[in-house]
Design a protein around this nucleic acid. Sequence first.
DNA 1: ATTCTTTGACCATGC
DNA 2: TGCATGGTCAAAGAA
Length: 506
Amino acid sequence: MRPRRGGDKEEEERVLSHGDVVLLRCDLKILGGPHLLNDRIIAFYLAHLQSQSHGDLLLLLPPSIPYLLSNLPDPASVAAVAEPLRLPSRRLVLLPVNDNPDVSHAEGGTHWTLLLLDNTNPISGPRFVHHDSLPPTNLPSARRLAAVLRPLLPKRTIPLVEGPTPRQTNGYDCGVFVLAVARAICHWWTTASHQLEPDWFEAVKREVNADSVKAMRTQLLHLIDTLIQANNNTTNNQHPSTQLPCPPSIASTSLCLSQHTRLWCHMQSHKKVAAVKPVASRPSSRLRTFSMLPKDSTATDSPWVTSEEEAIILRRPKASRFTPPMNNSSTDVAATRLEDSGTHRTYDKKKADAGQVACRDNLTVPQRVRKPIISVKNSLSYDGYNWRKYGQKQVKGSKFPRSYYKCTHPTCPVKRKVETTLDGQIAEIVYNGEHNHPKPHPAKKPSLSSIVETVDATNDGGLETRLEGCDQAIGSDAIVEAFEGGFNCLDGFGNGNEISNCKKKD
DNA sequence: ATTCTTTGACCATGC
DNA sequence: TGCATGGTCAAAGAA
């Protein structure tokens, strides 16, 4: 748990300043565990990793920035805040994600995950990759952040996929997992590995495990101690606020406090973010954590654009029959991603609520019923089951026609709704129910076309599982393998990850 | 001939 | 009660 504001002054004593990041003595206690890491610690270590990297193709952001972006009142403010980050020019951007849904509640967050904007692979194209040690707890937050960022990027239909993440077995180590994954990714990036491997998934699998995560708290404390001593030796002891230089990439986009204040004032004026603190669940978030805000955060009253606009797009085969071929051509393929279009929140909320329990209460792991997984492939959206279309209509609020399908198995109650764009691309798939029979077709190694993401079906009957497609075709077996490996590795960690791939990796 | 899609009509539900 | 909306049915047509 994070220390409460108002504790004794010793707890608030600064022990290290690393650029914009200030570590307090209470943070050292947090690292001693078992406690949920706060954003200062996460910001500190990401800043440290940033300082170890060279060039500006890799960008690690403190938690305050993605949280701010997710909660700004309008796209203009988001664009203004993000402008100095130069996201389109980055190859890899690491964005810590907190699940605090209430910006007015400073300690509302309960779970940390890591979202990456990945533009390292020209074949797969840009994508978001989400690492969650307790999936799908933070998926809604990650979706929200991705939806906010997409309009800022050259390609606005970038898919969001789940990356491999070992599952935490306690209620407080999510932040440590974030840092461990970030370390593995940075290591992959700063070595020749990124030239040999299509992505960092194998690196995460190699370097992030129960032992490495367990050791990380000690390593962080050792790192802090080393930095304090090193700085004391070179700066003639600036304690108690030992000042280390700001990492270049962060410093280059830093702004003065008055600029922070302008945006702060604007946010204060907005109903939704009134009294917002920069980051979820922190006792002492300060304006200084807004160090990367733009010089001109010109706020407007333009309406907030939701992620509904950005949907999807899946290349659709021309075949009129729904039952797909077993072998997809490369032109038919596409990834299917979990995405939120703004409705059917119930399902996500239930999952998120379940997950929140875990990181809020130490040692309390959510007692969730493991549910079968529905895999949504293409083409159109092949999932191993056969479907019969029994209706289609235009629904209000959707730009696309909605088709209704039933599983063709005689006793199977599963239905699904598929919305397709005018040019036949999948905009959304919603499953309802659970198959009571095995798949009619044996699993087969996919070709270039392959699912990238799967979701668990619900046993709850009334709940629905929503998928949305995307236009991100997977262009190489290597990438597909990586995705599959990524999902499969979840099981490799023995975590029983609920967002995992149904397919086997050869 | 069979299977599946299309599409207008009908029904249930909520406001 | 009437209307709007989403979901389902079933006849007709296409593959």
